[in-house]
Write a protein that binds this DNA or RNA. Structure first.
Lengths: 340, 340
DNA sequence: CTGAAAGCGCTTACAG
DNA sequence: CTGAAAGCGCTTACAG
């Protein structure tokens, strides 16, 4: 089952493959090629079901029309949505995307970047794991088209599309304060990643501005992992005791944390919002149908994905383009989980 | 920023690129190449950060170590999980995967298959849209490695990994009957796709075997779409009237339907399971933390993904391999949504 | 207006 | 044991 090549078409028609290549790439007019021959070539190509070999094109032109995407985990709906949007926006311009899940593991992302390099991708969209700054820096130094999403490295001047995490966390925490909560806990992950740090800072600042104490016992920064033990332990510490519960409200920095946290709360027989007010980043389906639909900071995933692709394609086209940092607006959606 | 090639290494060391290629592909021993030269080559490759150009390799060998994946929508957690597992299992064997979301649209999947062909992927894992049988058949006829997941075409002899949909729906419906429900509704999609048909058949058979009537008014087969109007209309018809509600239980054929359906039920002030007992296929996070955690038929997504990759890689290695149809076990998880 | 030729970076028979 | 050469399927200067 050999595929038909340019040569096959050329041979069949008794013309050169140069000519066939020109015609099939829409340069027939440009080179003023005989209209009839043009038509003949196109017909034959269709007849023989000609599919250009992108490997050969890529090898010759140095362009693959492929972008590499590295995210934490495609099974996480947050990244699933983002990935979908990126795939779609890329397809509009004829680009394919190779997906890689790094599990927030810099070793993995390193290998994945190497693999993508070998595949000669034209550019990268990356949600970088902690401690992968050197990998990103290496790309930036070589002026390889790259856009970071969800997080960035303050010390590296790169393209970035994301949100104002500080402001969003500040707003969410203030909402809890306004509703009379005094002991507000905060659960987060990835302590050394800027976006998470900003969320915690926003949370703290809101407390400070309201004259409330910042109690380090109420702040739990977990390590990233696929199991839930650490989170359950933290939740137990915060809410386990019947008398004198440490906290009366909680801010989840990610919906992955929030979903498991809410599962814990429900199974403990605690009530939201009566016993615990809840607010979270991100807005998965689960938050819409759970016992008390959750008040959230919703990120504009569609726009983030779309913008990331646009910035990347622009950089691919114009290698001299300066880096851009684009901050998009979040949406604060008030539901029932904080009471009123 | 030109990448280093085999030639660069060869030139630097004053040897031929043949030799460099042999060494770097681990054939040093086989060709009894001087140990010292071997070492030298490897060192230099590392120093110069040599990354093999997969395009060139692919063009030359006819193998790309890439597989094409076509699913309905990567943003749907069902496919997200599946995709993740496929990516992971493929990576174990050094394969990349290109993700495509077809939106259940045969026009899109057709284009995506063409694109993947042009990218010279070694094989396909496809969850085919309705009316895309001709596309699958074309691949099968050319003996192109291919595995279908989630659905298949009875008239086409291809690899397939999935579950017994009839049995699972039968079991779920019987569960509702056993708990005393008499007017059990069923909401499904994709009427012409075998997996969905089997689910509806299983549901009907359970009713029949229990001596209950099959009421076509209680069966709603929707078209696939990204908006929810059709589903909400169906739900209103089934459950809208306060007096004489048509149904007292419902089977959702997919979790996408179930999540929106449950949202509707909650917002209508109806209680699960008191007013309506609910059972659904698939097990997203949302089902675990919603008002009444949902009783579900859970598909073994990890195993499906893993098996699909294994079957595919085997077919790639052994083109003469016969097609396999692998049916994996589902898990029936009883929670609170059906009462007791 | 059309064709012959080079070359992208590999792998792999073939020679010696 | 090592190297020169062909060729995978394209694109694109260069000739005429």
């Amino acid at each position: 089952m050999k595929r038909t090549s340019l040569n096959d078409i050329a041979a069949k028609l008794g013309v050169s493959k140069t000519l066939v290549s020109f015609v099939l790439n829409g340069k027939g007019k440009e080179f003023r090629i005989n209209d009839e021959i043009c038509k003949k070539v196109q017909e034959t190509a269709k007849e023989m079901n000609y599919q250009p070999n992108r490997l050969a094109q890529g090898l010759r032109t140095g362009k693959t029309n492929t972008i590499g995407l590295i995210i934490a985990d495609i099974a996480n709906p947050f990244f699933g949505f983002l990935g979908r949007e990126i795939e779609q926006e890329a397809a509009k311009s004829g680009y394919r995307v190779i997906f890689c899940s790094s599990d927030e593991n810099p070793e993995k992302s390193k290998q994945q970047i190497a693999m993508l390099q070998q595949s000669q991708v034209d550019g990268y969209i990356i949600s970088p794991p902690m401690y992968s700054g050197d990998q990103v820096l290496a790309l930036v130094k070589n002026n390889i088209p790259l856009v970071l999403i969800d997080r960035f490295f303050p010390e590296i001047d790169s393209n970035y599309v994301g949100i104002n995490n500080f402001e969003a966390a500040y707003k969410a925490t203030s909402h809890l304060i306004r509703l009379g909560r005094k002991r507000i806990a905060c659960i987060s992950v990835n302590k050394d990643m800027i976006n998470m740090q900003e969320r915690t800072e926003g949370y703290k600042q809101a407390l400070i501005d309201a004259g409330l104490p910042v109690d380090e016992n109420l702040i739990k920064i977990l390590t990233f992992s696929h199991d839930n033990k650490e989170l359950v332990k933290a939740m137990k510490d915060l809410f386990g005791k019947k008398e004198n519960r440490k906290a009366d409200a909680i801010l989840f920095s990610t919906s992955k944390l929030g979903i498991i946290g809410i599962e814990f709360i429900s199974s403990s027989g605690l009530k939201i919002p009566e016993d615990i007010a809840v607010v979270s980043f991100d807005d998965p389906d689960a938050y819409k149908i759970c016992v008390s639909p959750v008040t959230v900071v919703n990120q504009p995933l569609k726009e983030i994905g779309k913008t990331a692709v646009q910035v990347l394609l622009n950089k691919i086209k114009h290698p001299e383009a300066k880096s851009q940092q684009i901050i998009l607006k979040t949406e604060f959606i008030i539901r029932k989980s904080c009471g009123s």
